[in-house]
Design a binder for these strands. Structure first.
Lengths: 217, 217
DNA sequence: TTGCCCATGTAATTTGTTACATGATTTA
DNA sequence: TAAATCATGTAACAAATTACATGGGCAA
């Protein structure tokens, strides 16, 4: 294989980086040099509210990949032999590639949602109504706690000019958590209505029939 | 660690199937026998709105695992030698295990959200404002289309007694998509406000709306 | 001096995807 | 009769987690 072919392949691979790699590079795109460890804490404290916080081992792996691609570079503090802090910074090439990725309208797929609570509601026919209700109620309580954390994170982000956009994202997250609460309350009400037997309007007997063989789909 | 501790850990791991396995078993928990192929189509048409639709190859793999655990069984239609339809059904053990999992309050972790659009907004300092706006506008358009699909799925689920809970989950999904639209419109407004220059502290910025009413239904 | 936080990394494993191979049945 | 759809599966690979190994610095 010629070196130009190799280069092309590397470019193609670089373009198709998983979103996680861009997220890590994104963390580096804000002012300052950071260690993998710091990146992980930052992701836990804010990225995770609207995206997700990778495992620390994955962050280290992504940092190595980004450095291999020339999108980031690193330097050690302390003597060479010792395994000590390694601080990463984004390169100009990295910033350019990231900017490119971030404004690519087509590439942004639909948001991925895996809602374990809803999965359980969906399976409601198997569960005791009271326990199902408890699953949703617990979710509400946890969401309230999360909401408090989002607000805290947003407060930290506010008034730092470089963090205007992160603050926007956190503002969205705050509203999103508020909406999640509203949705969960409505779900609880729907569940209660089912349990009490559907109210007057129309045909409502306490619908409990076996009702055979829906074909699926 | 003692060998008994190790044994306990292994047992715990065996009990803790990934949520995907439970989701597939859940698909089987509704009346009727189904092929892997049918399961995939069903997941595409409704599960994916609040959870996620696994790749067909993974569905086949999960079905084999579930059968190995005695949670499902299968039979072929057609002569033995030929590779033909294999229909799966849930077993009593499977139903019991699934019911157990579904009503376990503690086990239901927080919902997982990976929002590529928000990741891009978070990186707004790197992007051209107009293109960033386009990313969000595109997201709104796509969400509207998805909302229509959710409504369609919900209509299909309604009035089938065995699908009461799936219908509840889809009702939640519908509201969730509506909320997603509202949130995205608000985000667009925030973005515009940033671009126009922040307004004089008091409040009422111009913020041109999209003209569309977000909260249908 | 024990335990926690900082800090980096490897290894094993699991989870999940895409690409490919195969062939039957239905529909235009 | 060509195509799409139904249907199952394998193989290769990518993504991501958990468990483990290592060690410095600091505080109760």
């Amino acid at each position: 294989m010629t070196s130009s072919q190799i280069r092309k392949k590397q470019e193609a691979r670089a373009r198709e980086l998983p979103a996680t790699a861009w997220a890590v590079l994104g963390l580096l795109s804000f002012p300052g040099e950071r260690t993998g460890y710091e990146l992980k804490k930052w992701a836990d404290a804010s990225l995770r509210f609207f995206y997700w916080s990778p495992a620390i081992s994955q962050i280290y792996a992504e940092l190595r990949r980004l450095e291999g691609l020339g999108y980031a570079d690193s330097r050690r503090s302390g003597p060479e032999e010792v395994r000590t802090k390694r601080r990463y910074a984004i390169t100009d090439a990295g910033r350019a590639a990231l900017a490119d990725w971030a404004s690519d309208t087509a590439e942004a797929g639909p948001p991925v949602l895996k809602h374990g609570v809803l999965l359980r509601v969906w399976l409601g026919h198997l569960a005791d109504p009271a326990r199902l209700r408890a699953v949703v109620a617990d979710h509400i309580a946890r969401t309230r706690e999360e909401l408090a954390e989002v607000r805290e994170a947003r407060t930290r982000a506010a008034d730092t000019p470089a963090w205007t956009y992160p603050e926007l994202a956190l503002r969205w997250s705050e509203r999103h958590h508020e909406a999640e609460l509203t949705l969960a309350e409505a779900l609880l009400a729907d569940l209660d209505e089912l349990a009490d037997g559907p109210p007057p309007a129309g045909g409502g007997a306490p619908r409990q029939g076996t009702g055979d063989a829906p074909t699926g789909g």
